[in-house]
């Protein structure tokens, strides 16, 4: 900073909360203004008031569909953690395993996930499983990568300290390596959770009977644009809630991490 006097807008905590709100309201206002000024038909671009009233017409239905998508997302995400973290740990432990599995992981990750969606339906039907697996597939890679990186970042002197205390390998893992990797694991989780929402919507586009992705697809077929907008809004709210849930969890679990890194 070259100027010595910093504005209230950059320093005050109140402004830190207020500015995003102002930005959001401004964007919505612009959106509304655009529909009015250019006289856009509401089946092309509904105004914010149309979207709100669509939601208020059937709140129970839309919230139920949101819940369905949310559960699929969270289930797939948790499954990706349960599978991804141990695999990352094994990869870091063994060079042989790393060489054996890593290219395979890269290949799987390189496949556009939407290409697999119809196959998942063939294999697993129309229930929630193909959605959960799709979420798992998109989340898995960032979680594995960040965990592996975190596990490799343990400082040498801390490893030596535990050796000098005659710690067992298991103690070294749980008391040091895993704990030290936590901030990086969380970085991976935050990337993964946003992808998870995308994954569940993709899966719901193909062969679903419920969920917000299904709602969007149906509304597209019947040109009910404001319903699609309502569903998209709910999706993004869900995504933001999940993301900030993780951020909150990180603050609670790792109060040391913000200061040390």
């Amino acid at each position: 900073m070259t100027d010595t006097k910093r504005s209230w807008l950059t320093t005050s905590p109140v402004a830190a909360v207020l500015l995003p709100v102002v930005g959001l309201i401004g964007a919505i206002a612009l959106w509304w203004l655009a529909t009015v000024v250019f006289g856009i038909d509401s089946y092309l671009l509904p105004g914010p008031q149309d979207v709100v009233s669509t939601f208020l017409d059937q709140p129970a239905y839309l919230l139920k569909e949101t819940g369905t998508s949310m559960i699929e997302t969270v289930e797939g995400f948790l499954l990706a953690i349960v599978l991804g973290v141990p695999i990352a740990v094994l990869i870091v432990r063994s060079v042989i395993l790393e060489r054996l599995v890593y290219p395979l992981l890269l290949m799987v990750n390189a496949i556009p996930k939407i290409a697999i969606a119809p196959l998942l339906v063939v294999w697993m039907g129309f229930g929630q499983w193909p959605k959960v697996v799709m979420v798992l597939l998109v989340c898995f890679f960032p979680i594995v990568i960040s965990t592996a990186q975190g596990m490799k970042s343990t400082p040498v002197e801390l490893v030596e300290l535990l050796r000098s205390l005659n710690a067992s390998r298991i103690q070294e893992f749980f008391k040091l390596r895993l704990r030290y990797a936590m901030p990086q694991i969380f970085t991976g989780l935050k990337v993964a959770i946003s992808l998870a929402v995308i994954g569940s919507v993709i899966a719901e586009f193909v062969g679903a009977t419920q969920g917000l992705g299904y709602v969007i697809q149906q509304s597209g077929a019947s040109a009910d644009t404001s319903l699609a907008f309502a569903a998209i809004t709910l999706l993004s709210i869900m995504s933001i809630v999940l993301f900030y849930g993780l951020v909150l969890l990180e603050h609670l679990l790792l109060p040391w991490a913000q200061e040390t890194r």
Partner: peptide, 27 residues
Amino acid sequence: VSFMFQRPALLPWRSVLSNVMLPVEIE
């Protein structure tokens, strides 16, 4: 036999007391 390093080598998530107690805990 105890070993002391050039850097403090404290576990950043542990309190001061809990860091001091680490050798006992591991044992």
